[in-house]
Write a protein that binds this DNA or RNA. Structure first.
Lengths: 166, 166
DNA sequence: GACGCAAGGCAATAATATTGCGCGAGCGCG
DNA sequence: CGCGCTCGCGCAATATTATTGCCTTGCGTC
């Protein structure tokens, strides 16, 4: 059931919309080489089947006053499934936490956080995160600068693999 | 120059477009409470001033065959600026690396990587990353599961601060 | 070769984006 | 106070785009 086969046109559509989510359907159809109506039908299908999960504007966090990005490495006391889930739910409820990934190894979770400034992050850290139940230790690293930020999928790698599959 | 003042309508526009980047301008104007033409003019201004940096479709990496996400913590031998920049440029060129952040503390960089499977990640790890000049050590953590992934800005926090500023 | 499906294109229509223009509110100054 | 300026809104007209219906084509099967 997983991995319904996509043809090269579908992959091109995904690549184009990942790069520019507001491209008009006319422009998109031109780029992928078919006319507008079937192109739109493909896009709708990709949305319905979950290949496209949504569209978002990327906003400039710094300009909006979120000067600080921090990665927090969290270790828990108990790794029982119920405790892991409890922590995940807590993480989802914290607005400053934008991502929460469960990891293997020493560290149980890595959180990507944003905050207006260092002091508001620190009050979150001491008042909420380290104070949360079952949290054993938290190590934080401040982001000095961001050299690359391209969430999504490397479509060039995908195409290379698709060519292989021939 | 930074931090031009945005009014509540602008912030609402940003919040709505962050949540749904393909919303039509008429729907957006309805939600923020003004008519379509001035709403579109505001959006254009937000784009030109860099508050909106782009629009992107969020695609399902797993469905596309990228089963593996890994965080790699990289330490360099030299932290001279030229060497940091050299590493950043290398990171930008690796397709599997989707994010590269420079950190304070022990670890110099954290990379967020995706790969079709573990073996292709490991070949990247041993063949490219640890083999790169100036790389002293790399510690990797496999993502078991993702509990939260909402890149962007918490607009509820932003509104709370804006209310404070009154 | 006939049938049926899947996918595309064309043409018409509906919806949306975009532009031009006039209006009224807020503001600084005489 | 009142003039005149500016800014941002809304309305109306137009251009562009999205969407639908329908026909055609290619292809695999029987």
């Amino acid at each position: 059931m997983p991995h319904v086969k996509l043809d090269p046109i579908d992959r091109k559509i995904l690549a184009e919309l990942q790069a520019d989510g507001r491209m008009t359907n006319v422009e998109l159809s031109r780029r992928v080489g078919i006319s507008a109506p079937p192109c739109l039908r493909r896009v709708r299908t990709l949305e319905e089947t979950g290949f496209i999960q949504g569209y978002h504007a990327r906003v400039n966090a710094r300009e909006l006053g979120f000067e600080v990005t921090v990665f927090a490495m969290v270790s828990l006391r108990s790794q029982a499934e119920a405790d892991l889930v409890a922590f995940e739910e807590r993480a989802r409820a914290w607005p400053l936490v934008r991502e929460c990934h469960m990891l293997n190894g020493e560290i149980d979770f890595i959180l990507k956080c944003v905050a207006p400034d260092l002091s508001s992050f620190q009050s979150f850290l001491t008042g909420e995160l380290t104070a949360a139940p079952n949290v054993a230790s938290v190590k934080t690293s401040l982001v000095i600068r961001c050299a690359k930020n391209e969430p999504g999928v490397p479509f060039d790698v995908l195409e290379a693999r698709a060519a292989q599959a021939e």
